[in-house]
Nucleic acid binder design. Structure first.
Lengths: 358, 358
DNA sequence: CTGAAAGCGCTAACAT
DNA sequence: ATGTTAGCGCTTTCAG
């Protein structure tokens, strides 16, 4: 920086007082210690000179930087911009500066990011990740770095978190489909190393069982990533098993998006021949044709809550740890309908006995 | 931070040398000044104690923080995650820490963000914005804060930038449609306070003129934001003008996405009755039905170049300023086709004379 | 080759 | 009510 910043000393020299007096005036909490006339003079000069406190020097002295680290696994997944927006709105309003970083779902990149952030002396950390790096979290906890998880909890009850009732979300979808009369339901799971998609998967199996629907392992498939490509690959796999199904459920709107083109190519109409569902109620849900029945998760609100939890933690480190769980809701749109009289999902295998529909 | 960090002094005490010696060893450039045995002992102890340099103290001393501010107007617009990814990959590889912030297209929020960042003593700034706050940019320039713009240039040739040949992009689209035989082309522009969408708009008018196509102002409409809602609103407006058109061009895939549902409701098939185009080749382009003919902009590469420009600037502030312009390409998919024999875009006005097609 | 000492800008005892 | 002083952790002259 070529430019010379104005310091407390500059103001002190100009007003004929000591830097400590200037410091007191510029700190609202200590302003009262100083006589009004001097305070006013100092304030005027500070204004005139365009004084900006040096946060680096302040940080060195006080060990507080006003920065909060926010780690997300994939900023291009639309749930994270929403979450981040909620986090930022709260933190900025509270006078903090959020520092956002992308881990790309890579545990070691996450480790490096968090180390960097800690080197920068962040005052707190929010990790939005389905599979945070355990050692990193433990290190933060041990070193007393205020930490909040969002999108998952952690076994250790000392770590505050905001998570969603993912199993409930899965039940909402299956209940809806079962209610429409579907009995053969295929599922595209997300990567199981993420707690959220794992819960959706087990929740789905649980719900199928509750409805007395057969859990045909041929109708479960597993995406390696939350991308359209993986959705399409899994969808192809399901169609090739030649097992009949009348509904296709996925762990994320993005996976569902990947199915649509392939289904159209296969001559399957949604929802007439096949019901299709999403998860997360992202912008994809209304953009696709047909619009998706999906599970709404209030990601913005989750971000807000996570930020509040962190501020609580910073201001009151000894208060009991809170772990929030937020419930999702079902949004019914145009991609689901009662099953066709004869399942058409496997057009190549007309001999497979159609399952009767009430 | 409850936890006590290990400092140079800790290492010095443990090895029986002075802190300045430790400092020299820990700085690769000055390591050679110290005898090998001592250096090794210090390195071993540093490793053992888990020493991490205090970047705050370093920053106070050197006036360099290793942080680079990155300001984007809207992280939920998919072009920005791509751009940011390119920026981050370069900056992180060079040992810098990018600090990302969202201005929400608000000039005063942008001002506050940049002020905050400057208070944090960032070493440089990349502003990705269609309409950066002029005063902010001038202040950075005057104060010698290295600055690069991406997504637009600035009149002042002293500010390096990466921008795209937006007019060319607009020409590519119109050339393609004109080549298919379209003569009545409607346009949904983006907000004109952004340089990029402004250039697309004027480029479109220019291209229409070049092809001798009538510039019917009834067929131009202006979105207030890059959202699906605004796309839909503008599309409705166009349909209500009762002017016939056989192609609908927009300034952004997101605007195009907003049109699709409404067109379907109106009974217009794409591309049989109406050709439709996007811009930016985002994930929307392949997700929508039909897939979109659109303009591909290499946003990731743009981010990479912007970061490199900034690093150049930091390392060599006196080198001549470079301003990059990157050319877009046309991607033809399923949303464009020759116009129908009789334009159907205005089904309510059958009396409007159909334009002949070669 | 290594140590001593100063100082980056600020805050917070401790004096007066 | 204000000034003095010390020091946060580090780098960097300047001596030796």
């Amino acid at each position: 920086m070529v430019f010379q910043r104005v310091t407390l000393k500059d103001i002190a020299d100009r007003t004929g007082v000591h830097t400590s007096t200037v410091s007191r005036v510029l700190n609202p909490d200590r302003r009262a210690m100083v006589s009004v006339e001097i305070a006013e003079r100092i304030l005027a000069v500070a204004e005139e000179l365009g004084y900006r406190p040096n946060t680096i020097a302040y940080g060195l002295k006080t060990n507080r930087t006003g920065s909060i680290g926010v780690v997300v696994p994939d900023i291009s997944n639309p749930v994270f911009p929403e979450t981040v927006q909620g986090i930022e709105d709260v933190l900025i309003a509270a006078g903090y500066t959020p520092i956002l970083a992308n881990s790309d779902h890579a545990a070691d990149r996450e480790r490096i990011i968090v180390e960097n952030m800690r080197d920068q002396h962040i005052d707190g950390l929010i990790v939005a990740s389905g599979s945070p790096h355990g050692a990193v979290l433990m290190a933060c906890k041990e070193d007393g770095v205020p930490l909040v998880l969002i999108h998952r909890t952690w076994d250790d009850p000392d770590i505050p978190s905001v998570s969603y009732e993912e199993k409930l979300g899965a039940h909402l979808i299956i209940d809806h489909l079962a209610g429409l009369g579907h009995r053969d339901i295929a599922y595209i799971a997300g990567p199981l190393d993420s707690a959220a998609t794992r819960d959706r998967y087990f929740g789905t199996r649980e719900a199928l069982e509750q409805h007395g629907l057969r859990e045909n392992s041929n109708l479960f498939t597993f995406a390696d990533a939350i991308t359209e490509e993986e959705g399409e690959r899994c969808c192809r796999e399901l169609l090739q098993t030649k097992e009949p199904f009348t509904a296709l459920v996925t762990a994320h709107d993005i996976l569902t998006a990947g199915c649509i083109g392939l289904l159209a190519e296969s001559g399957l109409r949604v929802p007439e021949d096949l019901s299709l569902t999403g998860y997360n109620n992202t912008s994809y849900a209304t953009m696709l044709t047909p619009t998706l029945t999906t599970v709404h998760i209030p990601h913005y609100d989750g971000g807000v809550e996570a930020a509040r939890l962190l501020l609580d933690r910073i201001e009151n480190p000894t208060a009991p740890v809170r772990r929030l769980r937020i419930s999702p809701t079902l949004v019914i749109r145009n991609s689901t309908a009662p099953p066709p009289p004869r399942p058409r999902a496997q057009i190549e295998s007309p001999d497979s006995a159609p399952i009767s529909v009430k």
